[in-house]
Simulated scan of single mutants.
Amino acid sequence: MSASGTARVALLVDGENVSSGYAGKLLSEAAQHGCVTIKRVYGNAARVPGWDAAPGLRLVHAGQGKNAADLLLTIEAMQIFHDAQADVFVIASSDGDFSHLATHLRERGVLVIGAGEGKAPETFRKSCSLWVRIEAKSTEIDKAIAHVFSIMPDGLSIGQVNPEIRKRHAITLADVAEKSWRKYFEARPKLYAITGAGPQTRISLL
């Protein structure tokens, strides 16, 4: 605890798994449990659009290695624990690989709050002391995707869709219900025109 008796909270975000659009919600949730003294986002800086501009959060570049962000978040979480820098941990991710970290901290008497989307596996949710579901409204996501195409009069090739939408609105395929971008657009025939096949597929707004 801090000198004032207020719990110190560490907010650790898997930036490659959680959209920067949730920054405000995560900060608000963390603040409900005490004074948020550590606010970090982990990921390859080239793959986490929007997080570098999230107010109050420090982006920690994890490099390009496989699972580099997950490993660095875990290492720093344990350092924070052993240095007694926080009483509460908020781990923001929908990745089940953090189940072990959550369990390890909780078994040592730490309050662990997991925050993620509905796709987060049950193993991770149950490994936390508390679980908070963060979810963007589908209508807001649809509106943001349509906005990208509204400023692209010639449309986009299917290969350009993910990087362009991610760059402009930090939205990825994981944020929609469909399993592929083609299926997403096929489910909205009144909004989008689909031409071509395979890599030559092109999407445009009607």
Rank of each mutant, 00 (worst) to 15 (best):
Q200A: 11
E140T: 12
G114R: 04
A120K: 01
E186P: 06
Y184A: 05
D175N: 10
G155T: 03
E178M: 04
L205A: 05
T201D: 02
I134Q: 10
P121A: 07
R182L: 15
S180A: 11
R133K: 14
I165G: 00
L156N: 01
A187N: 11
Q200W: 06
L101S: 03
H147V: 02
R125M: 09
K143C: 09
P189M: 08
L205D: 01
I134K: 06
E107R: 15
P189F: 08
V112H: 04
W181T: 01
H100C: 06
R182D: 07
T195S: 12
T139G: 12
T139H: 13
L205M: 10
G118P: 05
H100A: 07
K190S: 11
E140I: 12
F124I: 05
A197S: 13
A170I: 03
H104K: 15
S129L: 09
F124T: 00
A102N: 04
S150N: 12
A115D: 03
A174P: 01
E122G: 06
F185R: 02
L191N: 09
I165N: 00
K137S: 13
E135Y: 09
K190A: 12
D154R: 14
A115Q: 05
H147I: 02
F124P: 01
Q200V: 05
S138M: 12
R133T: 12
